[in-house]
């Protein structure tokens, strides 16, 4: 066997990376347990927890009634006592049913009375999978505005595994947004030893000198594609993958924009009041003297995510959107 075939055998998908992180953390720490709809015998809607019930038993792989507010609240209670619940939303869209528990109870507990809530909510989000208005949402913006929560959204199998482990070990409520489109589409060879990706650290996925694209999750791959197109036109684009949305890695964002003097903010969440808007404001406040052009945002229009293919294609940001924005900026 050549080294190459060995490596290929070890490649894991983004989905498998998430599954590995859960499995390894449950083995490492008996306080870690899972809750969610259909995660036991069925292994979850996306099969992330396939085989977990047999391995860990029904009190660590807990099928819940269909009641997101109730089981998120229960996870908060278990976390207060010192367990480490990891809750699965069947789809991120349904997190709205638990909005109150997340923003009023989990987010505020430590601030109000010093009670830590070490829990993780995994939320399969994002479109491009013809899920329609209720199975494609990117709800991170709602929580971005709620102090007390940490929010992560990995783009690669390596980050997916490392960030989930970090989230489980964090003493705070962490929302972990995993992208459905990436589940089985991207693969990577992961280190065999235990590792984490620290929460709060962005990653420059492609270094460049001319324009910074600041983005996260599935859009990172779109930005990398655009960077290849632009490279042929001598436009050297830097791709900053935020990885963590709260707390934002401002240092890396500012460092990149101070170097390139131009910024594009790209996300799959709606444009108005999105994370791009916040970063644009930060750049205006902190990097104004370095800017050589307008701060541009690329994001879907302010509509629900549509179902039909041409509608969804129109809705989603495309590589060509990034390429034209970059060309426009390059002219400054």
């Amino acid at each position: 066997m050549t080294t190459e075939t060995v490596q290929r055998q070890q490649e894991v998908t983004y989905l498998e990376a998430i599954s590995q992180a859960l499995d390894e953390e449950m083995t490492r720490d008996e306080r870690v347990f899972l809750m969610g709809e259909d995660i036991g015998a069925y292994g979850g809607a996306f099969k992330i927890t396939e085989g977990f019930l047999q391995k860990y038993g029904e009190w660590r792989v807990l099928d819940t009634p269909l009641a997101e507010s109730g089981f998120v609240g229960a996870a908060i209670g278990a976390a207060l006592m010192g367990l480490r619940p990891v809750v699965e939303m069947q789809f991120a869209d349904f997190i709205s049913c638990a909005f109150d528990q997340i923003t009023e109870v989990a987010a505020k507990n430590h601030y109000r009375w010093g009670a830590a809530v070490p829990m993780v909510i995994r939320a399969p989000f994002g479109g491009g999978v013809h899920g329609g208005p209720f199975h494609s949402e990117c709800p991170e913006g709602w929580f971005f505005h709620s102090p007390g929560l940490k929010i992560v959204a990995p783009s690669t199998p390596y980050d997916a595994k490392g960030l989930l482990k970090a989230a489980i070990r964090d003493p705070n409520p962490v929302l972990y947004f995993e992208h459905k489109f990436l589940y089985r589409r991207i693969k990577a060879v992961l280190p065999s030893e235990d590792y984490i990706v620290p929460i709060g650290k962005a990653d420059v996925k492609r270094a460049g000198n001319d324009i910074s694209v600041i983005t996260y999750s599935a859009m990172v791959h779109l930005a990398l594609e655009a960077a290849q197109v632009l490279a042929k036109e001598d436009i050297d684009m830097e791709v900053v993958d935020l990885r963590t949305l709260i707390p934002l890695d401002k240092e890396t964002i500012y460092g990149s924009v101070r170097k390139t003097s131009k910024a594009i903010l790209l996300h799959e969440d709606n444009k108005t009041g999105g994370i791009g808007a916040e970063i644009a404001a930060l750049l205006a406040e902190e990097c104004f003297d370095y800017l050589d052009g307008p701060i541009l945002r690329i994001a879907p229009p302010d509509t629900p995510v549509p179902f039909s293919t041409p509608l969804e294609e129109y809705f989603h940001p495309k590589t060509s959107d990034i390429v034209s924005a970059a060309r426009k900026l390059a002219a400054y």
Binding site: S69, G70, G73, A74, G77, L80, M81, G82, D100, Q101
Partner: peptide
């Protein structure tokens, strides 16, 4: 809001 939380506390005791 604290009723689900209390349920989770009981769940921790059970686990």
């Amino acid at each position: 809001d604290n009723l689900p939380v209390a349920t989770g506390i009981a769940l921790a005791f059970k686990i």
